[in-house]
């Protein structure tokens, strides 16, 4: 029991929190872009698992981790392009297309995995932790915060860039206007459709990377359904974060904490809680988050196709 309150336990949990939050940070910050432009991509789960598989397959065949993450991003964007084609150009219902993308992603990756990889049982070389010199040797928290892999560190850059692009560039301003009052953008002579395509591609590209983190860093294997609802949780994170990239980062860490606690507490036999109850934690929090949404900050045109004139 003493273990739970010890500093060592805290440090381990903290390190795991950031690591476990990383796929959510990528997917949710990407989805913030998409939703700020008025496109709700509930197909995020499908995009993430395609990224997870594509990254894994690329590393298996090339042995290069950077190529793996690049492949994951491109695969995510390819799925995003299909989604955008249907929802933006053809103006189909975003929920229906998103649901189809989820089914497609889960089914397609399972099919390809069984066809090409399942009998090999092969794992890949995962992303190695990098020590930040000096800091990683600090007692307790040094290892947790300064001995992570490059992808985990890159979430810090990602959130900064996302904030900069969304709030400090002409692109970001226009993108936010597209989700609120697209006609203004049209009248200002910019293409609403082009911005929405851009937003969806940013979102799905990042979700692809988030997915690949699961197969190339978190574990060294692809498993069917490996994303286990993280795409849906990322959607909840966006809502909880009130469509802000910085918020998405913080809320992802919060969900990461629930994943980490769940794992750590399972390893505490003294704690007489069935592990199934602990595993529910992130999902219960998702429901709580969705109940807490307040109206008024949602992008006004979220989910509404734009018709010119």
């Amino acid at each position: 029991m003493d273990d739970i309150v010890s500093l060592g336990f805290l440090a381990t949990t903290l390190g795991a929190t950031w690591r476990l939050a990383t796929p959510l940070i990528f997917a949710s910050i990407g989805e913030v872009f998409s939703e700020r432009a008025g496109v709700l991509n509930i197909g995020l789960e499908g995009v993430m698992i395609v990224g997870a598989f594509a990254g894994f397959a690329a590393v298996v065949s090339t042995g290069s981790l950077p190529l793996g993450f690049a492949a994951a991003m491109l695969a995510g964007m390819a799925v995003g392009l299909v989604f955008a084609l249907f929802t933006i150009t053809i103006k189909a219902d975003q929920i229906v297309v998103g649901a189809a993308i989820n089914l497609l992603g889960l089914g397609l990756t399972a099919f390809l995995f069984r066809t090409y990889f399942v009998s090999t049982g092969r794992g890949v070389e995962v992303a190695r932790p990098i020590d930040i010199p000096g800091l990683s040797d600090l007692p307790f928290f040094g290892e947790a915060l300064f001995r992570q892999n490059l992808v985990v560190y890159s979430t810090l850059v990602l959130v900064l860039v996302a904030v900069l692009v969304l709030y400090r560039t002409s692109f970001g301003l226009t993108l936010r206007a597209v989700g609120e009052h697209p006609k203004t953008v049209d009248v200002a002579g910019r293409s609403v459709a082009a911005y929405r395509y851009g937003a969806v591609l940013i979102g799905t590209g990042l979700a692809g990377i988030g997915g690949a983190f699961l197969t190339l860093a978190h574990s060294n294997q692809f498993v069917e359904g490996i994303t286990s609802g993280r795409g849906f949780i990322a959607l909840a994170v966006v809502v909880f974060a009130r469509w802000s990239p910085l918020g998405a980062f913080v809320v992802s860490l919060l969900f990461g904490l629930f994943y980490a606690l769940q794992l750590q507490l399972q390893a505490q036999p003294a704690l007489n809680i069935p592990y199934q109850a602990l595993q529910m934690l992130p999902y219960v929090m998702t429901i709580v988050a969705l109940v807490m949404v307040r109206k008024g900050v949602t992008p006004t045109m979220l989910g509404v196709p734009y018709n010119k004139a």
Binding site: T169, S170, F171, L173, T174, R176, E180, T184, V185, A188
Partner: peptide, 23 residues
């Protein structure tokens, strides 16, 4: 043709100049 949750000035620069420009 005004975006309600942006400021007056932001509405004025909306869609002006290169998209990649940092404001």
């Amino acid at each position: 043709m005004l975006v309600p949750n942006l400021t007056v000035a932001e509405n004025y620069v909306l869609g002006q100049g290169s998209p990649l420009r940092v404001i």
